[in-house]
Design a protein around this nucleic acid. Sequence first.
RNA 1: GGGCGGUUAGCUCAGCGGCAGAGCAUCGGUCUUACACACCGAGGGCCACAGGUUCGAACCCUGUACCGCCCACCA
Length: 896
Amino acid sequence: MSREPLAKSYAPREFEQRWYSFWEERGFFKADNASPKPVFSIVIPPPNVTGSLHMGHALQHTLHDILVRWKRMKGCNTLWLPGTDHASIAVHYVLDKQFEAAGKDRFKMGRDEFMRTAWEWKKTSGGTILNQMRRMGVSCDWSRERFTMDEQLSRAVVEVFVRLYEQGLIYRGEYIVNWCPRCKTAISDLEVVYNPSRGHLWHIKYPIVGADGKASGRLTVATTRPETMLGDTAVAVHPDDERYAHLVGGKVLLPVANREIPIIADGFVDREFGTGVVKVTPAHDANDYEAGIRNGLDKITVIDDAGVMTEAAGEYKGLDRYECRRLLVERLEKEGFLEKVEEYDHNVGQCDRCSAVVEPKISIQWYLKVATLAKPAIEAVEDGRIRFVPDNFKKRYFEWMYNIHDWCISRQLWWGHRIPAWYCDVCGKIVVAREEPANCPTCGAGLRAEEDILDTWFSSALWPFSTLGWPEDTDDLATFYPTDTLITGPDIIFFWVARMIMMGLKFTGDIPFSQVHINGIVRDEHGHKMSKTKGNIIEPLQLIDEYGADAVRFTLSSMAVPGTDIPFSSKRMKGYSDFANKVWNAARFVLMNLREEDDAGGFAEAAAIDGLVAARRDAMPLEDLWILHRMNQTAAGVSEALDKFRFHEASALIYQFFWHELCDWYIELVKPVLTDPDAPEAERAPRIRVLLHVLDYALRMLHPFMPFITEEIWQKLPHQGESLMMAAFPEARAALDNPGAAQKMQDLMELIGDIRTLRAKMNINPKQPLKACLSAEAEGAQALVEQNLARLLALTRLEAVEFRDAVPDGWLRGVSRLGSFGLDVPVADVAAARKRFQDEIKKLKAEIEKVSRKLDSPDFVARAPKEIVDENRSRFEEMTEKCKKLENNLEQLPSA
RNA sequence: GGGCGGUUAGCUCAGCGGCAGAGCAUCGGUCUUACACACCGAGGGCCACAGGUUCGAACCCUGUACCGCCCACCA
């Protein structure tokens, strides 16, 4: 095998897409519904077809892909099912804008033409986000891509609707709903977002009609929406309010409209608010609507579907609601009905999608009774069959589920699943059926199809099983349902997660997933929400262009603490991009120094290395034993962290291991062997095996996080198998555990660190070759240093180390755990040296004082766990000893 | 009005009973032939405040103060 060296600089654009195509063409992403392997399955939270990749997607796709690649490498039959959501309102919004620009109108063009246009749009633009996802490196099974309006998924929707209707859980009725006058459809409670807004509170005087039919005094009502007074059908006071008790049963004259309306008593009135009198407009306020029903009031609709005043508004007919408000207030003031106007802060409900101010409106809609579905869904979380990560999000879930209201599921839109209902205009029969009925089953007349479609979230609620073929009894469903993990944001726990749990339990009898991982929201570097108006949006695709997908993924993963928002900054981004560069260069260095002999395929495989360690354990260099031990621990730690969705922890473990252990120490230590062209093969080969094995396994650990760079490198290394993504993820191997070697290495590294610190602190030119001495006081210290002398000299740039009982006078002195050491340099600045020792002693003494106080406390010794006490004892001894040595060194300094 | 979360190094955040951590920034030194996107060092903390529990608290409990988020029909 001939090897091409890695390119001189890390240029992710050169290879990222190449490897993606490679993986996809080889079918590595595909799940197998006949495999005997353990299953791991995830369905994607389907992005809107109108969507384009934002940081939230980038985060979720990264986390999904890390889990999926990790499980795949762990030997699972892994499915990640991709797809998109038809997003009724969003599509309408996009198309409406296009129509507007072209001077068209969907109501004029008609339903059929609109739907043709919409499908056409979906065909050309609906795949944008999926292609953007590919750039992230997602390992989705594209052969199973789904769309919520696919023929099969639509069948599932109809099936669910019909069954729910047959069981009496879906009903149709007239109620007050949230109406968006821009989208011209009803929306559910969840789709209304309340934003604080500075408004006014108008105090309007309604003349009281006396017994004689003439005005006798006035009642003042306060309202934020004066235009609705045209639809008032009563004023109300609290039943126990003594101020107004005598008026109840009487009437007031509604100004402008000049209608007499009753004064009623109803408990919903708050006596403390305003004057304690409230105008009642049943057609335009949810509370008033309820009060209207309780009191048998009329409902007068004065605002229409588009937010325009109706016939019932009299002379204001045809005006926009806000224009009407302005004119009406003007007139009330002129005619003396306006008592005062106050500034008033209150919440205004706006449409989630288009931000238009929502208008409560009476209309006939379809509803789903959720209470019976909610019960088992609550139980599934209560008994732990479904777990939230972090756990406290279940509180939010419970809070909503316990107070759940019926769900308005009909929408007056066209793009979506049409409600499978037909009306007989002759006998009034409503038919709900799977197939369109020919005519009325009761009277035989022709039928009229329902115009409304379903709320988009209705089909989303079925996603985990509809995508797998339900209601058919498919192999996919049997194999991959229930899915394992759902990763999603906190914003759609109610919209989506809760409803999936309800529908999944109802129709499959099983939970849709067992874990719900709630990720945080990606914010800007100051923790502010990203928004177009703030102009602080970061585009993931731009980041990928600049830094590569691997660096973006690793950054997001490093910051992904469950349930915690992510302040994303380009500084952090750069840090992890540097990490990718580090990985690249480490690999390049190794590759540069390989020989032809190193190409033998599997020589760095796990079994071979385990065998090597077993056979040569005592003869192996310390750093080899150490790095294998650390690799082993890191692999175990990464899997443990990923098991708990602690992506930030897993990332940190690999980062630390790869950069600060593998690169900073291990590669530096093997450098002499690696780069020496004359090194005998017998000595070199076993070292290279270990190096290549550790590098290979480090790449495996890193692969779920940084799939592209690891594949690019791995393919150039001697390896077995077609692709890194199909290689085994490192498992902890008992053969590699070696805490003894790790401790020795630790001591050695500490000695090297102490020598370096001393040089740096005393400002000695790093290039200056020095002699050193060590009084090896710790047990085994001399042997350890002797055996690793070459390494020590190389890393400290010393030329020799002698073992002496005492540091000669006049040398620079230092103290390490292994013993006191000295450097053969004249102590130029005695005062500085003295101060260094004094500072160190002072610090150490404070520490000793703390520990000894602890040890002196009888309570501590008696009640703390034994290992803690022992730990403190040995720490105390160690510190005291070191302190003695430091003091000794201080004494031996020549006096200034 | 209810509920949840946050307050730790200059900045952004981990840690959540037993020696206060990371990345970036700062300071000093090195072009040591993988990487200056690097290397070697250093400095920097009453863990918001006040009580309590504990042998021991950044961590558990109670309260206070700010800051976020979620839910709720007060016109």
